[in-house]
Design a protein around this nucleic acid. Structure first.
Lengths: 340, 340
DNA sequence: TCCGATTATGTTATCGATAACATAGAGAAT
DNA sequence: ATTCTCTATGTTATCGATAACATAATCGGA
């Protein structure tokens, strides 16, 4: 009799509840999943049994049978970034309200395809009903797995010419270009950048540099640091630029942490912000508005993105077909403060 | 024939791979889970079939059969706090290396027992092989569920006289007391506190106040703010204390964000730090060391806690028995910087 | 040369729930 | 009164993998 020795300790299962309530297991299942298909008295009796026995339904078994795990996987590089933190929060709340558990994975900023593929495989093996994934560039293997999962997918944070399914992102190069235009409108023509080396940060900087050069401005320098960004790295990076800051210069940082570090270091060396050095960060961290003086940055509505992503997925999970409008750009805007 | 209409699209399953490789399904399972029990040639053939068909094993089915989900659930209030961020990172890495997927849930700071219980039920329904949970005070229902899950559990962040199973935490009241002693050693006798209203923050403040009063110091005030803490709230809170800051005073904040806000605001009003106002934060956020001037805070080794917690769970998952040493206190220390 | 130990693989019976179908009883419509 | 619906519940056959047992093939040693 295989399986008889499998039971180290027997947790309560649906048949126990059914026996205790004097009904069939299926009725217990209905009380839990589709209560309006059960009479009020039966439901009450079953609920009492559930309560009494401390029954916690085995969603693994249920998921296998129904082929729906009631779980969605979310992959973000970090939640140290407020945009992701807000996004994850909103997304999780919305999905949870709809009865889905979010399985959150932090992928970090490493560009190790093998590790990313392994994570994805581990997640897909749990058969999530839907997927939220950061970034729009995936390895060929990853892309194939995603397509063959036959599950609604939202890619966030990035835009892609060829999304796998749905998309909620923005054009990072365009952010850089708009910041450049913003500076130039204020008469700047000498520029430096400090950036992390992750793909999106580099795109923003690239967009900035292109716009600067297109408008005939001068790039004095362009420091690239390993992700994730820290305040200290912003300080160190600015120190290297000190000799060039004799004339009025504009600085674009790929993160508010770098910007805060740069401003801190600049003040320490008697460089006037914004007169001598104008600074714009990215992310609209609380720090950017709450420090003294507050500094200019780019705001991206993470919460908006999270709720959009959740709505898209939920609509599809409810059986509605894919739509063209499920590929949207999240808005961003430059928040002007004392540093520019 | 029930089930025939269940297949919207047929994903590759173990029998498909087995057929393609000319072996029994069990052999495919062995290639994946216990490769040394399969001959090299067979394994190679099966791997080729897996690759060719793009097979992603259904861990739901495997989990049901083996009664091991290869998944551990982790519940933390937030990862905005660097201590939790570090802990989660280390913990996740260690568990992943050992072949376990971490299912991370953010519970927030709300003390809504019903919501917490619902989250716990949703997680336990997925039959995690182990659990990491923040805090040591649970509702009666939660405690019962945890005990009846019959799964290794680590409670972190807090100490408890009666842990459910294993514990990696520290005494928050003791942190407060040590900060008070630290201030008093520097000759302070007038004190204020600014704190979030979450349970642990309040414990730290309470420990601080008791130590102050025990030593005959004077508490000038004690602001409590809703969690989570922000820089701006630190600034606002300090503003209310301005009239009392005519004499030398020491401030203990339950978070570095509050401390940073308070220092920012103090400087703005011409109050000398640390001469007029000495400040100690909590958390050792990067901000505390990277801002100018850097400020004193309390450091708790999140990474250490995460790896301890992972080791404890892994040991038990490997079948070893519970030990007394699996209940440890994480060390904390006051990091003295320019603000005191 | 034959046998017990070892290794590689196959077979069978579940794991715990749910979809689909089946059925009994109550009330509505004619 | 009879048939038809609808509602509440039960029955059966899976979902896709793996544990435990069974068996065939290989091998070294007396």
């Amino acid at each position: 009799m295989p399986g008889s020795a499998r039971t180290p300790r027997a947790p309560v299962k649906i048949t126990d509840v059914a026996a205790a309530a004097g009904v069939a297991p299926m009725t217990v299942s209905r009380v839990i999943n589709t209560p309006d298909r059960v009479s009020a008295e039966t439901a009450a009796r079953v609920r009492a049994a559930i309560e009494r026995l401390g029954y916690v339904p085995n969603l693994i078994a249920g998921g296998l049978s129904s082929r729906r795990s009631r779980m969605v996987a979310a992959i973000v590089p970090t939640i140290a970034h407020p945009m992701f933190a807000g996004l994850v929060q909103t997304f999780t709340d919305a999905m949870r309200r709809a009865g889905y558990q979010v399985m959150l994975s932090l992928s970090g900023y490493s560009d190790d395809d093998a590790a990313a593929d392994a994570l994805l495989r581990a997640l897909l093996g749990r058969r999530p009903d839907a997927l939220l994934i950061t970034g729009a560039s995936h390895s060929a293997a990853a892309r194939q797995m995603l397509v063959e999962a036959h599950v609604p997918i939202v890619e966030i944070w990035d835009v892609s010419p060829m999304p796998i399914d749905m998309l909620v992102g923005f054009n990072h190069a365009q952010v850089g270009a708009e910041v450049a235009a913003f500076f130039q409108a204020k008469g700047h023509d000498r520029f430096i950048t400090i950036s992390a080396d992750d793909a999106r940060a580099l795109e923003r900087i690239e967009g900035f540099i292109q716009a600067v050069q297109h408008a005939g401005g001068t790039m004095l320098g362009n420091t690239v640091l390993p992700a994730p960004s820290t305040i200290m790295e912003g300080r160190r990076a600015l120190r290297d630029f000190l000799p060039q800051l004799t004339q009025r210069t504009a600085l674009f940082c790929s993160s508010d942490l770098l910007a805060f570090g740069a401003i801190t270091e600049a003040k320490l060396h008697g460089i006037a912000v914004p007169e001598q050095l104008a600074v714009c960060g990215f992310g609209n961290f609380e720090l950017s508005s709450a420090t003294e003086p507050p500094f200019t940055t780019v705001n991206v509505e993470g919460a908006e993105a999270g709720s959009l992503a959740a709505n898209f997925l939920l609509r599809r999970l409810a059986g509605e077909p894919a739509r063209e409008e499920d590929r949207v750009h999240v808005s961003f805007r430059i928040v002007e403060r004392g540093s520019t």
